[in-house]
Simulated assay, not measured.
Amino acid sequence: MRISIKESGGAAYFPGLAKPRTVELEKLPEPDQQELRQLIEASDFFQLPQSTVPEAGNPGRVHYTLTVAEGEREHTVCVLAPVKSQALEGLVQCVRRHIRS
């Protein structure tokens, strides 16, 4: 499984520097893999509406574009910060933590 995240918008946003970062679950320790899988399941990620653009009317707000790919299945969701769903917020923060390490 592969999870990509792209952070856009906000006061310190530079479009040229906003490239997607990717986490390969197979390269993580087993407890981290399980945590990410549980967060994907808890957020019903693959059931969320497919979206690649932020909500209109919020140009200065930070938004995250998450893509989860597993085998033939791939799904992309764009959400505004702060993320309303606690499970989805947990997924965003967990992925962000792993791309920094």
Rank of each mutant, 00 (worst) to 15 (best):
A42F: 01
S51R: 11
V92P: 04
E7S: 03
D32A: 11
V83N: 08
A11I: 15
Q38H: 11
V53N: 07
L80E: 13
S51Q: 05
A42S: 00
H98A: 08
L28R: 13
I40F: 05
F14G: 04
E41H: 10
N58T: 12
N58W: 07
Q38K: 13
K84R: 13
S43Q: 03
A18M: 06
I5R: 10
A11L: 14
R61Q: 14
T65Q: 14
Q34E: 14
A81K: 08
T67Y: 02
K27E: 13
A12V: 08
A12I: 02
E41R: 10
S101H: 15
P49L: 04
C78E: 06
A56E: 14
T65N: 12
L66P: 01
C78I: 03
G10H: 03
H63P: 07
G10N: 11
G9K: 01
H98G: 06
F45V: 00
V95Y: 07
G16I: 08
G10V: 02
Q34F: 07
R61E: 14
P49I: 02
I40V: 11
F14Q: 14
A11M: 12
I99S: 08
G9C: 06
R21W: 09
R97E: 15
R37Q: 13
C78L: 05
E26D: 10
V68L: 01
R100P: 02
I3Y: 10
S101E: 15
A42K: 05
E30N: 11
Y64F: 12
E74Y: 02
L48I: 06
R73S: 09
R2F: 03
R100C: 05
S101Q: 15
T52P: 02
V53C: 03
Q38A: 11
E26S: 09
L39F: 01
V77H: 04
E72K: 14
M1S: 15
E72L: 15
I3S: 13
Q86S: 06
L48W: 01
K27C: 05
E7P: 00
R73V: 11
E35L: 15
R21C: 09
S4R: 12
K6P: 01
T65A: 13
P82Y: 02
T67N: 10
V95P: 11
L80P: 05
S51K: 09
Y13S: 10
H98Y: 12
R96M: 08
S51E: 09
V79C: 01
R73P: 06
